[in-house]
Design a protein around this nucleic acid. Sequence first.
DNA 1: CCCCTGTGCTAAACCGAGTTAGCACGGTTA
DNA 2: TAACCGTGCTAACTCGGTTTAGCACAGGGG
Lengths: 345, 345
Amino acid sequence: MPASRVTLADVARRAGVSRTTASFVMSDRTDMRISDEARQRVLAVAEELGYRPNLTARGLRTTVTRTIGLISDTIATTQFAGEVIHGALDTALAHDHLLFVVETSDDPAVEQRLIEGMLDRQVDALVYATMYTRVATPPPALDGRRVVLLNSLDETFDGPRVLPDELAGGRNAAAALVRAGHTDGIYSIGGRHLIPATPDGAWAGRLRMQGAEEVLAEAGLELSGTVECAWEAADGYAAVSGLLETGIRPRALICLTDRLTLGVYQALQQAGLRIPEDVSVVSFDDSALASWLRPGLTSVALPHYELGKAAVDLLLNGDQSRAVHRIDMPIRTRQSVAPPAADRS
Amino acid sequence: MPASRVTLADVARRAGVSRTTASFVMSDRTDMRISDEARQRVLAVAEELGYRPNLTARGLRTTVTRTIGLISDTIATTQFAGEVIHGALDTALAHDHLLFVVETSDDPAVEQRLIEGMLDRQVDALVYATMYTRVATPPPALDGRRVVLLNSLDETFDGPRVLPDELAGGRNAAAALVRAGHTDGIYSIGGRHLIPATPDGAWAGRLRMQGAEEVLAEAGLELSGTVECAWEAADGYAAVSGLLETGIRPRALICLTDRLTLGVYQALQQAGLRIPEDVSVVSFDDSALASWLRPGLTSVALPHYELGKAAVDLLLNGDQSRAVHRIDMPIRTRQSVAPPAADRS
DNA sequence: CCCCTGTGCTAAACCGAGTTAGCACGGTTA
DNA sequence: TAACCGTGCTAACTCGGTTTAGCACAGGGG
């Protein structure tokens, strides 16, 4: 039974002091003179009764609720949001905050309702997140609030933003191949994501490719080719099948997502090519899939957890500066990369 | 700028009535006599000023916050929690509620802190969820609260529980094969999950197998064999490779998870067997993987969204009866099931 | 003319904290 | 001996709503 909660008044009464005194003791304020004896008495009683301040009441008076809103366009579809929530949650908890988690499904009316709902509950600050990196502008309802943008390219936003460091990620992918000794027959599968929906390529795609090409150039190398295609499993299968049919025998592949790589694996294995003995494969995302594949897929991680963590950290540290925080994309090494076979040089 | 909010007092003043009257109008209470004229005036002013009640203040007085807590053991690792959150969120929103989402990482100390945090914020009710079905008992801190258990087998719990209907799911899987005309060479890969950690099998495994065997028996059929193994990708690969090496040529496989099936696909394709022409495959989970695989995998869905939805529905309908609500596990038909080839009967 | 009933409204208390203003007391100094 | 100061505390107000108790007035009946 939720036996009616112990209030500050209960504590004060039992300790023989006024509510005011009890309040000052509990909030540890030193600008008011309280005898050490009274302080100890209040603390002892609070402990004994298991007093916990009612944050709703406190919130009403102080307008701070120790609560943060996390607005996302999508939660379910991808593993993305799960990790972001996880990172945000852990960080919030470390600072004694809780999270309202909310999903707009990219519907402005829903978004409006959800934001109103959070403001009605007096959230202290908000993370405005999107599932994948794109230009996402927070609605006017958030103007003047403490907000951090997660995964948004909105340059006009006047506050901190958190983004994955895709350029460095691209460099990490190529560096793994260079380190293994690859010098030629390196192909990119997926490329910049030059499909009708994104004719100029996806932001992530452009930066990943740029990073990869930088590293190759620094080693005096270059890509033998790029298959531009969409980033789904079927596209990876088609891309590599096509490559093999033209007689090309790649020695290393930079695939732009793990999903894509699922198809790539199927195409390579169907053609009797062994990973990594015949062909090395690096990918991006480090999704659960990367560890399920055989051999385990070496993949550059999208730092979802760290993105969520960084966003909440910025909010709780009160950082309102207009800066872009790029989060490292570390490579998770598994078994899909090996030195090129000597007999085929 | 968050221009200081419009309060009920503002509305009352402008409408020329007392706060009491304004309050009664806004909360649409009929037990107090308000002239239609006054009512209209208040409503018009509220609309004009864009009045929104401060739910913190209301919560303090009424102890209802229109806020629900969702406690989960894990969020990030699986797609599970994402869908559960999604379903819970949608349903909460439909009833003008918001969700605190929280993850315990199965650490009782963390769980305790999180529950205290939610109670300090006066949540109205809570969903106590686990990532996969197991005996999970809510801690004493939740005694006497409105709680729904999601995915827990705790028989001692005195309230509603929500579970996937695994027995019906097992029936659905087998029925798909029977419907396609399969009569023999049907094997189960994964079985009851009889591994050292779960020597009696997993709850889901037992029910899925029972359901499948029921349906086969009703059609006068039976399994040609079961490979008991763990439910990861590598196990699926090993299981089917092993089967094929003994000279067995299965005609249909019931695989107990999509992950497992990923390995199964690799083993079959490596052996030159075509799906579904040579071997039909049904699976469980309907994860994203099922749609990524080639050919698309027919899979019995774990109804995560519906579980979350049902749990919140029960909470908001005030249902406190001690009942187990089994949620349907519908089969998602793709391309991995076909009639058995005639030439091999 | 008084009493009664119904209508329409409001004053004031309340929820549980935080915060401001100031009081009582003892000791020190002029 | 009064003025002054520091110490230790509390009364009362505040936040923005909900809720209880009851007041003022009009109209009808006896």
